[in-house]
Design a protein around this nucleic acid. Structure first.
Length: 746
DNA sequence: GGGCCGTCGCTTTTT
DNA sequence: GCGACGGCCC
């Protein structure tokens, strides 16, 4: 064995070593959290290249985010001390997009197709609904898109799609029209990237065989979060030699909502019975207490392979549980602990991560961080690319790239105002459709003086617009994207438009600033073509934007936290309806997935975990009461500090509301840990006088459909009484008293 | 054609 | 509490 091999394998445990040096053929690595799976993947690639003499370009590795891909490539290059030409590392989506462009002659879309995000999809589905004369109030675009996305992930195209009943029939029509529109717009949605590539491989032997020959070795990270399309892609690409190396952990499957199926891990064992299976159980990240807590949680899930995670890091600090009065107080608590631990333990801001179930929860946290001047970085949320001014300018860029993009066309045809109103746009579209023209053909036809059904002044305006587009396309040829943007802003008087459409000067200045930032971004893209730039920004993940070099506290969703680790981790908003999320109550396997999400959160921590929940939380702009998450009870007693006695007993919501001391002004504030808040504890407000109300807190009631439940809160709302009831079967519901017809039981 | 104002429905999670 | 959309009026 050469010195190089020793390098590659030293410091690896037995399981890791077995994985890295596994012979050709299928390999399945079942890797618990913190068991060094990234290490195994990088060392495996390095091993293939150095010890087996495989050319880097014959290796494809698939990761979950672009950030992970970049890190993986950098680590392999560091191990081998070499720049690796042709090593393909990327996300499924990015790899598929590239492939579909290269093989565009075998597909309906052209090589320069656009990638539509969720907002674009929404506009397109609305367009389809309008064309089909369907009411978007009756057929929710969101839910239609969910169904369509689900079908695509199962490789069911619009032709094969069969829906149940009338709604299914409608969905089928919408799906077909939506897909036609995507093709005429020369665009693909995220799901198409996977579906179209899988179908291309499945149906076109010539293409399939070409890539099968080209990529001799395939490695896939986070295999538990692959969907059917991805599974098919992997198996088609890996054949016939099946040098496929997959790494995953069923307990960390958290993407079922986008079609992922952790059973793919077991399916892999069935499809490749000769696969070498390696279990990685030693954890190098967390203390024993953290692992025991995590295990207490995940053991509640049935139908799983039990794992015995262990670590050499005995003991550790207990898990701290904190009950706050409000979401605001919860946020203040988090900030105060960060400051306290930073000073006492000599931690850096970058050592802390604050996690939550939904993006909306970041708001209260951000406010507290800003108030106390503690630096933080937010992952995802309402991102830069969601802002109106950025979307407008992006729509211009996209239209320059591809005039047939109807979503961008509709967005900016009259923004800023150029006198082309709704009526003119409709006339233009129906005329173009009648002539079987694409948008670009229709604009050209008007410019060439072709007779149309449009009015003369409208025709003139469309021709002017077409001339602008042509001039911009000219500039785009030079690949100077900043110059292109400058010209678009100048010709359209966009800055003036921003000031006219902003409510305050401050708002206008902020939007201006965003435009400048966008310009700066384009300025850095030297030598990159417009279509390359558009692809780059379409496929960035939220975590991809995380700045590692910045010393600040990280705020992120539990989903975004996958694959990351931090010395200190806060899991916030641990309340019924949030984690577990309300929407999971009536989904099959919903609760198990929520529990895995909680598990993923806890296992990100190296040293300490803080679990927090609030008695009251702002939702929809009003404060409503909450109940501690059931998951808190899954943590074995003895591992926590500050856990309320109320939680260690298995009590129902009703007794929680009775036993809690919040909202009862005669009693002292019943917080469970010593307070170290930056601001004094809030004074709980006395319950508002509940005159004329039929229902009262703690009353037992029965609903015709939901069954028995307990009233959490009741209050006036409009002319009616609004009752919040926690039902045994369906959880918390908010009802209008006059319609709900609740029967009072006691 | 465009601007203003009221109503509604809504929030998981993401490439 | 906010943004999308529709109706109404100039």
């Amino acid at each position: 064995m050469s010195a190089g091999t020793l390098d590659l394998l030293s410091g690896l445990n037995e399981g890791q070593r077995a994985a890295v040096t596994a012979p050709d053929g299928p390999v399945l690595v079942l890797a618990g959290p913190g068991s060094g799976k990234t290490r195994v993947l990088t060392h495996r690639i390095a091993y293939l290249i150095r010890e087996r003499g495989i050319h880097p370009s014959a290796i494809m590795a698939v990761t979950f985010t672009n950030k992970a891909a970049g890190e993986m490539k950098a680590r392999v290059e560091k191990i081998l001390d070499d720049k690796l030409k042709g090593l393909q590392v990327g996300t499924f989506h990015a790899i598929c997009a590239r492939l579909l462009r290269r093989e565009s002659e075998h597909t309906p879309q052209r090589a320069d197709f656009l990638i539509y995000d969720t907002d674009d999809q929404q506009s397109l589905i609305n367009q389809a609904l309008t064309e089909l004369n369907l009411d978007s109030k009756k057929y929710k675009p969101r839910s239609l898109l969910n169904t369509i996305s689900g079908a695509k992930n199962e490789l069911i195209g619009p032709r094969e799609f069969v829906g149940q009943g009338y709604l299914g029939e409608v969905t089928s029509r919408v799906y077909s029209r939506y897909q036609e529109l995507l093709i005429t717009n020369n665009a693909r949605d995220f799901d198409d990237l996977l579906m179209d590539t899988a179908i291309l491989f499945r149906d076109t032997a010539q293409v399939r065989e070409k890539y099968q020959r080209f990529y001799e070795y395939l490695l896939v990270d986070e295999f538990q979060d692959t969907n059917a399309a991805q599974y098919v892609l992997v198996s088609l690409l890996a054949a016939p030699q099946n040098n496929v190396f997959v790494v995953g952990d069923e307990d960390q499957a958290i993407y079922a909502f986008r079609g992922a199926d952790y059973r793919n891990v077991m399916q892999f064992r069935k499809d490749y019975p000769q696969a070498k299976v390696i279990l990685l159980e030693q954890n190098y990240r967390s203390t024993q207490i953290i692992l025991d807590a995590a295990r207490g949680v995940i053991d509640q899930n049935t139908h799983r392979t039990p794992k015995a995670l262990f670590t050499d890091r005995r003991g550790g600090s207990p898990i701290t549980v904190f009950e706050a009065y409000s979401d605001q107080e919860e946020a203040e608590y988090v900030v105060s602990i960060v400051e306290q631990q930073r000073k006492r333990q000599g931690m850096d801001y970058r050592d802390f991560a604050i996690m939550y179930r939904t993006n909306a929860q970041s708001r209260a946290l951000e406010e507290a961080f800003i108030k106390e001047g503690v630096p933080y970085k937010l992952v995802g949320g309402v991102g830069f690319y969601k802002r109106r001014e950025i979307r407008d300018l992006l729509a211009y860029l996209r239209l320059v790239n591809n005039v047939d993009d109807s979503v961008s066309f509709n967005r900016i045809i009259n923004v800023p105002k150029r006198g082309i109103g709704k009526k003119s746009v409709e006339d233009f579209q129906s005329w173009a459709a009648k002539q079987h023209f694409t948008f670009s053909q229709a604009l050209e036809a008007l410019s060439n003086g072709e007779v149309s059904s449009l009015g003369n002044s409208a025709i003139k305006k469309f021709i002017e617009f077409n001339n602008l587009l042509k001039a911009w396309q000219e500039i785009a040829q030079s690949n100077d994207l900043a110059a292109l943007l400058d010209d678009i802003i100048a010709q359209t008087h966009y800055t003036l438009h921003l000031h006219e459409t902003s409510d305050t000067t401050d708002e206008a200045l902020e939007r201006d600033e965003n435009v400048r930032e966008f310009r700066g971004l384009l300025k850095d893209k030297v030598g990159i073509s417009l279509s390359e730039f558009l692809e780059e920004i379409a496929l960035v993940a939220d975590v991809d934007t995380l700045a590692d070099d910045m010393n600040a506290v990280t705020l992120l969703t539990l989903h975004a936290a996958k694959g990351l680790e931090y010395p200190y981790v806060f899991l916030t908003g641990l309340e019924e309806g949030i984690l577990p999320h309300m929407r999971s109550f009536d989904e099959p396997d919903g609760m198990a997935e929520e529990r895995r999400l909680f598990y993923v959160g806890i296992t990100r921590a190296m040293q300490r975990v803080y679990l927090t929940y609030a008695f009251r939380r702002m939702t929809y702009g009003e404060s409503s009461p909450g109940v501690p998450s059931r998951f808190l009870r899954d943590i074995p007693a003895g591992l926590t500090e500050g856990m309320s006695a109320r939680l260690t007993k298995d009590i129902d919501r009703r007794s929680y509301m009775e036993e809690t001391t919040w909202d009862k002004p005669s009693l002292p504030i019943g917080s469970s840990t010593s307070r170290s808040l930056l601001s004094p504890p809030p004074t709980p407000k006395a319950p508002a006088p509940k005159d004329n109300l039929k229902y009262r807190t703690n009353q037992n009631v029965r609903h015709a459909k939901f069954g028995e439940g307990v009233v959490i809160e009741s209050k006036r709302s409009g002319g009616d009484e609004e009752v919040t009831v926690s039902f045994k079967s369906v959880g918390i519901k908010r009802l209008a008293a006059s319609f709900a017809n609740l029967q009072i039981l006691d």
